[in-house]
Computed example of a mutant assay.
Amino acid sequence: MDNISVFCDDCYVREAISSILKGIKRNALNSSELSVFLFEKTWLNETELSMILNCQSERIIIFARESLLGFFSSLMLPEHISFGRYDMPINNLRKMMDDFINPPVKEFSVLRRKVIPEKQLSPSERKITSLYVQGLSVVHIAESMNKSFKTVSSHKRSAMKKMGISSNIELMQKGRVFLMMNREYLLAS
Rank of each mutant, 00 (worst) to 15 (best):
A64S: 12
N182T: 11
A142N: 01
V152W: 14
N45Q: 12
L49I: 03
N92A: 09
C8D: 12
E143C: 07
P123C: 05
L75V: 00
N3Q: 08
N54W: 11
F108C: 03
G175H: 08
L93T: 08
F7I: 11
N3H: 14
G23Q: 11
P103I: 06
S148M: 06
S189Q: 11
N168E: 05
S31K: 09
L93W: 08
F178C: 07
I17F: 08
F83M: 07
N27P: 04
L69P: 05
K147D: 00
I4W: 00
N27I: 10
K41H: 06
S153G: 10
A28F: 03
P78D: 12
F149S: 02
E79G: 01
S35K: 11
N27F: 08
S166H: 13
I20P: 04
S31P: 00
A16S: 09
I17Q: 01
V177P: 00
D98E: 12
N27Y: 07
S158D: 08
S167K: 05
K95F: 03
H140W: 06
R112H: 09
I165H: 02
S122F: 10
R126H: 13
V105E: 14
L49G: 02
N30G: 10
K174L: 15
S31W: 04
I4V: 14
Q134A: 15
S158A: 05
L111H: 15
E40T: 10
L111S: 14
A28P: 01
V115M: 13
R85N: 04
K147A: 05
I128P: 14
L69C: 11
Q56R: 05
L29T: 12
L38H: 06
K161H: 13
V115F: 11
K162I: 04
M96H: 10
L29E: 15
M76Q: 13
A188Y: 13
L68R: 03
K119H: 06
S32C: 12
K150Q: 12
M160H: 06
G23S: 08
I52Q: 06
R126T: 13
E66H: 14
L49P: 00
E170F: 01
K25V: 13
D9M: 02
E15P: 03
F71V: 07
M160L: 09
A142Q: 02
N30I: 10
E40C: 03
K114P: 01
I116L: 14
K41T: 14
I116C: 10
F178G: 03
S153E: 06
Y12A: 03
